[in-house]
Deep mutational scan, measured.
Amino acid sequence: SEEELEEFAKEVLRRGITIIVNGIRITEVEIFVKVLREILEKR
């Protein structure tokens, strides 16, 4: 749901943790923004 997305976004921003994806360091915020864009483009 959109509320869950908002909560996830807030949690990500609070933690600001960097994770490893395919050997490249990407912040969770960047991943969230990318996923959010993909979701919005599909609408």
Rank of each mutant, 00 (worst) to 15 (best):
S1K: 09
S1M: 11
E2I: 15
E2A: 14
E2D: 14
E3W: 15
E3A: 13
E3H: 12
E3G: 11
E3Q: 13
E3Y: 14
E4I: 13
E4G: 08
L5T: 01
L5F: 06
E6W: 15
E6G: 03
E6I: 15
E6Q: 13
E7V: 08
E7K: 12
F8Y: 10
A9Y: 05
A9V: 09
K10P: 03
K10G: 05
K10L: 13
K10I: 09
E11G: 05
E11I: 06
E11L: 06
V12T: 06
L13A: 02
L13M: 06
L13F: 15
L13E: 01
R14L: 09
R14Y: 04
R14C: 03
R15N: 09
G16D: 06
G16A: 10
I17W: 15
I17D: 11
I17C: 02
I17V: 15
I17M: 11
I17S: 04
T18Y: 12
T18C: 04
T18N: 08
T18G: 06
I19N: 00
I20A: 04
I20R: 04
I20F: 09
I20V: 09
I20Q: 05
V21G: 01
V21S: 02
V21M: 09
V21P: 00
V21Y: 15
V21K: 04
N22Y: 05
G23Y: 10
G23D: 03
R25C: 09
R25Q: 11
R25V: 14
I26Q: 00
T27V: 12
T27C: 05
T27R: 04
T27F: 07
E28N: 12
E28F: 06
E28H: 06
E28V: 06
E28R: 08
V29Y: 09
E30V: 10
I31A: 14
I31K: 12
I31V: 13
F32R: 01
F32L: 15
V33E: 01
V33P: 00
V33N: 01
V33S: 04
K34M: 11
V35Y: 13
V35S: 03
V35I: 14
V35P: 00
V35F: 14
L36K: 00
L36Q: 00
L36A: 00
L36G: 00
L36N: 00
L36V: 03
L36R: 00
R37C: 01
R37I: 11
R37Y: 04
E38Q: 09
E38R: 04
E38S: 08
E38T: 07
I39M: 10
I39H: 05
I39N: 02
L40T: 02
L40C: 10
L40Y: 07
L40K: 05
L40N: 02
E41F: 08
E41M: 07
E41G: 09
E41C: 09
E41R: 05
E41Q: 11
E41N: 14
K42L: 11
K42N: 13
K42W: 07
K42I: 11
K42R: 12
R43F: 15
R43Y: 15
R43P: 08
R43V: 12
